[in-house]
Amino acid sequence: MTTKTGTPLVEMKDISIAFGGIKAVDHVTVDLYPGEVVGLLGHNGAGKSTLIKILSGAYKADHGEIYVNGDKVDITTPRDAKRHGIETIYQTLALADNVDAAANLFLGRELRTPWGTLDDVAMEAATREVMGRLNPNFRKFKEPVKALSGGQRQSVAIARAIHFNAKILIMDEPTAALGPQETAQVGELIKQLKAEGIGIFLISHDLHDVFDLADRVSVMKNGRLVGSARTTDVSQDEVLGMIILGKCPPGATRGPGAISDAELAAVAAHV
């Protein structure tokens, strides 16, 4: 188990964001330590993806602060996030379909020749190398990524996130498009990255996956944090109760989104 001492790699404090009056994320606080995997759980629309998009620079929070290695940082664009070593694998993968794997891998960070032109050959070589590690069967280096299968596209997105020495990795449903074998491969990858001291936010619908890989879980419901817990301190059923009812078990740290005992009793009476 990871030791939770020293400064966290990332701390998102009291984050809020609203879209047209709807509070997608409502005063949520989460943190992440080096070499730790934190699972973010919750229903569709609970605000997980929105929360991590604030960290990755896609959205700007209305309220709250982000600390990286204890320093307050200002993340307003994806460029800012990348500068702080935060890499993201989006649920939508965020690939430009019309260009090839190498172009996607280096998008925004192209390798250039001494004359300032694109060094496509060097980029393809690097892509072949990183894809060789991730997905040895990958062959379609010359084709636009729209010609790739779901799993191949996903491996391009993963390759892009890990190629640039990320310190903090955000994985939003990284195995959604993968078969069992590839899912296992991603699991291995996560363990390997973790061993290298990288902190990972993992968003997944699959509780088993999360319990396999995560050290801690944070559960969100209706934009609010229900609670956080070490995966060793809570059972899967208890976490399910957090996701569905917002019921915070004894092993977890209570968040503002957890329902009170009185409310819980009322729900129980209905059932």
Partner: peptide, 20 residues
């Protein structure tokens, strides 16, 4: 780079933005 960005934006504007 400029040309690469032009095509990336055309292929997926959101992805281009997220790529920085």
């Amino acid at each position: 780079r400029f040309g690469r960005y032009v095509f990336a934006i055309g292929g997926n504007p959101e992805a281009a933005e997220l790529a920085g």
